[in-house]
Design a protein around this nucleic acid. Structure first.
Length: 389
DNA sequence: TATACGTGGGG
DNA sequence: TCCCCAAGTAT
C-alpha cells in the first residue's frame, strides 16, 4: 500500500500499475447502476447500518451457509445476551451454544467464542481492522475476513461468496468451473469491480459495493429463476440468466423416534434429556430427547410427527410421550448404555445447548417458550418483498 | 482437493 | 416421508 496520498479521480482504477485490475465489464458504469439499485432496494436487516465491528462479525458468521430469516431470529437474542466481545468471552461455551441452538453448524459458535476469548486475552478485546489479520482468527476464512474488513472497516477488498460467484459467472458468461482457475477468475473479476477507498470519504464505498453484490445475488440473480427484468445491470450481462450448476448428492430419508418424558417436582416440570457424547462428530455435547429404537414404538401412536433435515438426511421424526407411571415400556426402551440422561427443569431449557430438533419439538409441544425476535418497528420495518411490477 | 458440518422453507 | 437450496470454514 502506497503511503502517498492520491487525489480521487474518475480513473482511480488505473492508478495501481503494479496490480492491474481488468474486467470484462465497464467497472465504473457497473458500480453506478448497482449502487443506484441497492440504495432503493436493499432489504432492511438488523445488521445493516451498525457501527460496532463485533456486530458485523457476528452477523457474518451467522450468515455462513445460513438463510437470512434464520439469522434474523438468532442475531437479536444473541446480542441481548452477549452485547460485547467481553460478555461473549466470559460466558460458558454451553450458553453460547444455547443461543446458537437451531442455527446449525455449531462449530461456528465454538470458534466465535474461542476467538472472542483470544481477543480479550491477547488483543485488548479489539477486533483487528484488516482482512489479513481477521483471517487468522478461528472461524474467519476468506469470505468472512473480506466481509468484515470492508463492511466494518472500509477496506477495499472484494468479497466472494456463492452469490457473488453466480452473479459474476452470469455477467461474464464464463462457465462454472470448480477448480483453482475458476475461483481465480471469479476473484479477479470481483477485485476489479470493488471501488478503492477514497481518502476523506464519509461513505463506505467498498463495504456497500460488496453488500450490493451479495444482495443482487440473493434477491434478483437467483440460482433457479433469476428476475432479470428487474436487474440493474441487465444491459451489461452476457448471459441474462443462463447458469448451469453441477448436480448434487441425493437426500436420504430415515425414520427416527424420540421419547418425551416429563415429570413434576413440586411446582417445577422436568423433562428427560440425553447429552450427546463429547466425541460425537455431529453436535457433540448438545442435549436432545432420548432416542428410541424403531422396534420399541411399533403400534404406538406418536404425540407429534415432523420432518427434520440433518446435513444430507431427512429424518421423519415421531415423538412418543411417556408421562405417567403406566407407560414404563417406552421409558425402558431408552438404551441404558448410551447413558448421560438428565432431568432438566423446563424453565432452564433456554440456557441449555439443545439440538435444533430438540428445541423445535419442545417448542412445538409448549414445553419451552419460544424466544421471539423483536417485533417490527419504525427502525426495523418488515422485509421488503420484490414486486413483480 | 474432498469431505464433514445443520437447518428450514419452498416448489 | 420428494427435492433443492444459502452471506463458508477447517481439516
Amino acid at each position: 500500500m502506497s503511503s502517498v496520498p492520491r487525489p480521487a479521480t474518475a480513473n482511480d482504477d488505473r492508478m495501481h500499475p503494479a496490480a492491474p485490475k481488468t474486467t470484462l465489464l465497464d467497472a465504473a458504469l457497473f458500480r453506478r447502476r448497482l449502487m443506484s439499485w441497492y440504495r432503493t432496494h436493499a432489504r432492511e436487516l438488523p445488521w445493516r447500518h451498525v457501527s460496532d465491528p463485533y456486530r458485523t462479525w457476528l452477523s457474518e458468521v451467522m450468515l455462513q451457509q445460513t438463510r437470512v430469516a434464520a439469522v434474523v431470529e438468532h442475531y437479536q437474542s444473541f446480542l441481548r445476551r452477549f452485547p460485547t466481545i467481553l460478555a461473549l468471552a466470559l460466558a460458558p461455551e454451553s450458553e453460547v451454544l444455547a443461543l446458537w441452538s437451531g442455527l446449525g453448524y455449531y462449530r461456528r459458535a465454538r470458534m466465535l467464542h474461542k476467538a472472542a476469548q483470544f481477543l480479550i486475552e491477547e488483543r485488548g478485546g479489539i477486533l483487528p481492522g484488516t482482512a489479513a489479520e481477521l483471517r487468522t482468527l478461528p472461524g474467519i476464512g476468506e469470505y468472512t475476513s473480506a466481509a468484515i474488513a470492508s463492511i466494518a472497516f472500509g477496506e477495499s477488498v472484494a468479497v466472494v461468496d456463492g452469490n457473488v460467484e453466480r452473479v459474476l459467472l452470469r455477467l461474464t458468461g464464463r462457465p462454472e468451473q470448480r477448480d483453482a482457475a475458476g475461483r481465480a477468475f471469479v476473484q479477479q473479476q470481483a477485485s476489479a469491480l470493488v471501488p478503492n477507498r477514497r481518502i476523506g470519504e464519509q461513505t463506505n464505498a467498498a463495504g456497500d459495493h460488496n453488500q450490493a453484490m451479495m444482495e443482487l445475488g440473493a434477491t434478483l440473480c437467483l440460482p433457479k429463476a433469476p428476475l432479470c427484468l428487474h436487474c440493474p445491470v441487465y444491459a451489461l450481462c452476457k448471459t441474462r440468466g443462463e447458469h448451469l450448476t453441477p448436480p448434487r448428492a441425493a437426500q436420504l430419508s430415515r425414520p427416527a423416534a424420540y421419547l418425551l418424558n416429563l415429570r413434576k417436582r413440586g411446582t417445577l416440570t422436568e423433562v428427560l434429556l440425553e447429552r450427546r457424547p463429547e466425541d460425537a462428530s455431529l453436535m457433540p455435547d448438545m442435549y436432545e430427547l432420548p432416542p428410541l429404537p424403531q422396534d420399541a414404538v411399533q403400534g404406538r401412536e406418536p404425540l407429534l410427527r415432523l420432518r427434520h433435515a440433518i446435513t444430507n438426511t431427512n429424518y421423519y421424526v415421531q415423538v412418543y410421550a411417556a408421562s405417567g407411571p403406566q407407560d414404563r415400556g417406552l421409558r425402558r426402551a431408552v438404551p441404558a448404555a448410551k447413558g448421560d440422561l438428565h432431568w432438566v427443569p423446563t424453565n432452564k431449557l433456554n440456557s441449555k445447548p439443545l439440538t435444533g430438533l430438540a428445541r423445535k419439538v419442545l417448542q412445538r409441544l409448549d414445553v419451552m417458550k419460544v424466544d421471539l425476535p423483536r417485533l417490527p418497528t419504525a427502525t426495523n420495518p418488515p422485509k421488503r418483498t420484490i414486486s413483480a411490477r
